[in-house]
Amino acid sequence: CHSECLGNCSQPDDPTKCVACRNFYLDGRCVETCPPPYYHFQDWRCVNFSFCQDLHHKCKNSRRQGCHQYVIHNNKCIPECPSGYTMNSSNLLCTPCLGPCPKVCHLLEGEKTIDSVTSAQELRGCTVINGSLIINIRGGNNLAAELEANLGLIEEISGYLKIRRSYALVSLSFFRKLRLIRGETLEIGNYSFYALDNQNLRQLWDWSKHNLTITQGKLFFHYNPKLCLSEIHKMEEVSGTKGRQERNDIALKTNGDQASCENELLKFSYIRTSFDKILLRWEPYWPPDFRDLLGFMLFYKEAPYQNVTEFDGQDACGSNSWTVVDIDPPLRSNDPKSQNHPGWLMRGLKPWTQYAIFVKTLVTFSDERRTYGAKSDIIYVQTDATNPSVPLDPISVSNSSSQIILKWKPPSDPNGNITHYLVFWERQAEDSELFELDYCLKGLKLPSRTWSPPFESEDSQKHNQSEYEDSAGECCSCPKTDSQILKELEESSFRKTFEDYLHNVVFVPRKT
């Protein structure tokens, strides 16, 4: 048989008469490798580009789960590009990614509803959504962080984005990388972005840091009482949809009607710091009717980097990364020049730590249904340095008659930039024990000054392991946590139920 035959053949030295091919099969003959313009397919066939392209389009058009959109890589027609490569849609070739590779997620039936953290986790790592997304989240724990972890990498949506009755959302900033909504599939009414009845939605994105392009379709905003109209108009300008909307697409009466839409800028007039305090004062603000001013709200939190936005980490279910302080308005003076500047002394802060701070007014709604208010920009203030805590785990070892090696770990709280350490030492008198000992005694162990690591005695271990207080009263049991108490109650309830079950099964009433 021919060298490319495997198993047997019907005619000697003829690659077209093989029972099976050793390498690849091409047009009725066995070959060692697939010549151009053919590609290896499933490690035994040679196919042309049209064959591989037909497989790709067949799966793409069917949208069946589990099928493969075949691509070409290293002269092979394979189910998908290997790690580190992405497909070129024009020629199906796998090309190296520039940075992290995109991950295209194809949605069944063309859309997916995100109504819980669990459903959001199914899209973790996706960068391109081939379909439409509907966000409908009523509640949950730590929602802002969970949504950002699972949806934060999405850069492109081919269909539309719909935010509907998501009472738990305060902001859409968890879509931190969303840059493009194509609108290839539109919501009824030709809408590519749809926001309806979101009672706590206050911000779409921080438009000073976020760009969003909507290729096709219109915007729809109705019944978002805490979303200011200025935020919607800003989205029109940034996304390129200005002029597409009709009169009733953006409701003037049901958007922002319960919001404090600040239209003035508060400026800080005085800032002073110490290692654990920050004193702030800002310019006074009074609405047209000074009785509408209820006070100020001061927001602050630790910020290692200057990239904080107002609604980071917030949701309507209680999660809030900001510390909020309510401040009463100052006494009002008739003389504008003698107006008191409101302020606040922030206490209990960490030394040498940068804080993000902003302040906003708290006002009631005027009778004319106009909203007044003022808010400052987010500023960054760093507390002063102070003395560091003591170095940890000092170790001293003498390696000769004239040297001592000293080692330690950095302090747990540096409280500033540590530039150097101060080492103090003092000579001590020799131990009298060394002169009084009889060095001729056998088995004498000389006193040693070398360091030995501390260890816990058996008594201390027994005390720590004991669940009861000892007789001397030195140790006591740790208080039980809520989960331990709940577990004990469940076990007790189970024992009672099981005992009742045994009584009912074992003891049967005697027939009379």
Rank of each mutant, 00 (worst) to 15 (best):
L108P: 13
K112Y: 04
I114A: 02
I114E: 00
D115V: 02
T118Q: 01
S119V: 08
S119I: 14
C126K: 01
T127Q: 09
G140F: 06
N141F: 09
A144T: 03
A145L: 13
N150C: 05
L151Q: 00
G152V: 02
L153F: 08
E156R: 02
S158T: 09
G159R: 02
A168L: 00
A168G: 03
V170S: 08
F174N: 02
F175Y: 02
L178V: 03
L178F: 03
I188H: 11
S192Y: 01
F193S: 00
Y194A: 13
Y194R: 11
Y194D: 09
A195L: 10
N200A: 05
N200R: 07
D206E: 13
D206I: 04
K209V: 15
L212E: 00
T213W: 05
I214D: 01
N224R: 00
P225R: 02
L227K: 00
E231F: 14
I232T: 14
H233C: 14
M235K: 00
M235R: 00
E236C: 13
V238E: 11
V238C: 15
S239G: 14
S239T: 08
T241Y: 11
T241C: 14
R244A: 04
R244G: 10
E246V: 11
D249R: 05
T254E: 05
D257E: 05
K267T: 10
F268L: 03
T273C: 14
T273Q: 11
S274Y: 10
I278P: 00
L280M: 12
L280N: 00
P288I: 11
D289R: 08
L294H: 11
L294A: 06
L298N: 00
Y305F: 09
Q306M: 00
N307W: 09
D312A: 04
G318S: 15
S321R: 12
T323A: 13
T323Q: 14
R332Q: 10
P336L: 06
S338H: 06
N340P: 07
W344R: 08
M346T: 03
K350G: 03
P351D: 02
Q354W: 12
T361G: 12
R370W: 11
G373N: 03
D393N: 07
S401R: 10
S402M: 13
K407R: 09
K407G: 05
